[in-house]
């Protein structure tokens, strides 16, 4: 049935590969989490958090490690959707919405367009030594530091609060009216800048394109 639909073989592979990955990692994890919830070790919201967190981290790892650029872009989408789920857990539906719309929709789409237009196939071949080991060392130290730092802090025992939609709008458009306008201008400038940047006058095109 699937073969009748004229899809590229690559797409096929993604579906199958993704399914196997989700199945191999997601199903045992889900079982473990459900069991933990059932025995009362963790609460239900915590379970949701962990699921989302796993999606986020796996997606992020995929995004930074996968050699295929399209795979990386799709992993990024997974991460962003996971983050949106986390926002819901944090009781901010509006931001979750925005996250999915802007990121999951706009930004990723934009990135994919970029991929297509730059004909970028894979992570380019390293020319003179990778700084990956240094980056790894540095990042591990940094994450370690951050975690030590935040764990050493005394946060009390706060609880999450719902953000009232009306209040949020009130604040956004009254107190933060000026920043909003500035951001609007910024967006405008960014778009104009992007246009100007990408637009090539006929005389400064590279020679091959003539």
């Amino acid at each position: 049935m699937l073969k009748r639909i004229p899809l590229p073989a690559q797409f096929d592979r993604i579906i199958i590969g993704g399914g196997i990955t989700v199945g191999a990692i997601g199903v045992p994890l889900g079982i473990v989490l459900v069991t933990l919830v059932a025995f009362g070790v963790i609460s239900a919201p915590e379970m949701v958090f962990f699921v989302a967190a796993i999606i986020v981290i796996l997606g992020a790892l995929g995004c930074v490690l996968l050699p295929n650029i399209v795979h990386a872009a799709l992993s990024l989408t997974a991460t962003l959707i996971g983050v949106a789920a986390l926002y819901l857990l944090l009781m901010s539906e509006f931001l979750a919405l925005v996250q999915v719309l802007v990121y999951g929709g706009g930004v990723v789409l934009l990135l994919l367009f970029g991929l297509m237009m730059t004909n970028a196939q894979d992570d380019p071949v390293v020319t003179d030594g990778s700084q990956k080991p240094f980056a790894f060392l540095l990042v591990s130290l940094l994450i370690g530091t951050f975690i030590t730092l935040l764990l050493s802090g005394d946060w009390g025992n706060p609880t999450a609060h719902v953000v009232p939609f009306e209040l949020f709008g009130e604040r956004l458009f009254r107190e933060f009216a000026l920043p909003i306008i500035i951001v609007a201008v910024l967006l405008d400038v960014a778009i104009t800048g992007a246009l100007v940047n990408v637009h090539t006058a006929s005389n400064d095109l590279p020679e091959e394109s003539e």
Binding site: Q131, F134, L138, L142, T145, L149
Partner: peptide
């Protein structure tokens, strides 16, 4: 990488 190293140093100082 240099910037990141700087961030690391700063955060270690905060720590």
């Amino acid at each position: 990488l240099g910037i990141a190293a700087g961030i690391l140093v700063l955060s270690v100082m905060v720590l």
